Computed example of a mutant assay.
Amino acid sequence: MKAVYIKPFLTALLIIIADQAIKIWVHSHMYQGQEIKFLGDHGMLHYTENNGMAFGMELGGDWGKLTLTLFRIIAVAGIGYGIVYLIKHKYHRGLIMNGALILAGAVGNIIDSTFYGVIYRYAPLFHGRVVDMFYFPLISGNFPQWFPIWGGEDFIFFRPVFNLADASISVGVILILIFQKHYFKHETPEASAPNSEMVEE
């Protein structure tokens, strides 16, 4: 296999391994709700689990959980095929590597939702919970009373608890959005100037 194929998938594999290592450590050494602060009140490990998508979003019920897990598996197959397609057609390397980040994040969370319920003996196959731990409540306070809808309520930025897989997906998507013009630019052939043909005498 050519190096151009190896690098994106090796990058994805390393992220998956790191993501799973962190999750296993958190599950083995922390109880749910426990916090280990490393940036004071603005950055910490906060062990939580969720049944759904990135950053704790969910689809309700067992069928919602099963549907989400199966959708993830199909999406991973599609992303993997897409990366191979991009490589074969010599798309920008940055686009390919960002695709690898998205692939790694998707696989990382699939492992949780597919196998963790069986491994840790709390749910059947495809019904496991995703382990989250990174929490960065950088800014907290109250909305002013005059603020529409949320006036007087507490707010926290950044509220979601996430994992390395979530971060990998987010970075990949954000970089593609930022550099999309660079990744997908097409060179157009120069138009022939009028009267440019040489007339032989």
Rank of each mutant, 00 (worst) to 15 (best):
K7V: 08
F9A: 01
L10V: 07
T11D: 00
A12N: 02
L14D: 00
I17A: 12
D19S: 01
K23I: 04
W25I: 14
H27F: 09
M30H: 12
Y31P: 00
Y31S: 12
G33M: 09
G33I: 07
Q34Y: 07
I36Y: 04
K37T: 08
K37D: 05
D41H: 09
D41E: 13
H42L: 05
G43T: 08
M44I: 10
H46E: 05
Y47I: 02
T48D: 03
T48M: 05
N50G: 01
N50W: 11
M53T: 02
E58Q: 08
G60F: 02
K65H: 06
T67N: 03
L68G: 02
I73R: 04
G78K: 11
G80N: 05
G80S: 06
G82Q: 11
V84P: 00
Y85T: 09
L86E: 01
I87A: 04
K90G: 09
K90P: 04
Y91W: 13
Y91I: 01
Y91N: 09
H92V: 14
R93A: 12
G94I: 14
I96C: 02
N109G: 01
N109F: 03
S113M: 03
F115I: 02
I119P: 08
I119W: 15
Y122C: 11
P124T: 07
P124N: 14
L125G: 09
L125K: 11
G128S: 11
R129Q: 15
V130R: 03
V130Q: 05
D132W: 04
F134K: 08
F134N: 05
Y135Q: 07
P137C: 08
L138N: 09
G141R: 06
F143N: 08
P144G: 00
Q145I: 11
Q145M: 07
W146Y: 06
P148W: 12
I149R: 00
G151L: 14
D154V: 10
F157N: 04
F157E: 05
F158S: 07
R159M: 10
R159Y: 08
R159K: 15
F162P: 00
D166K: 13
A167H: 05
S168V: 15
I169A: 07
I176M: 10
I178T: 08
F179R: 03
K181W: 14
H182K: 12
F184N: 13
T188R: 12
T188K: 12
A191N: 04
S192Q: 07
P194R: 06
N195A: 03
S196M: 02
E200R: 10
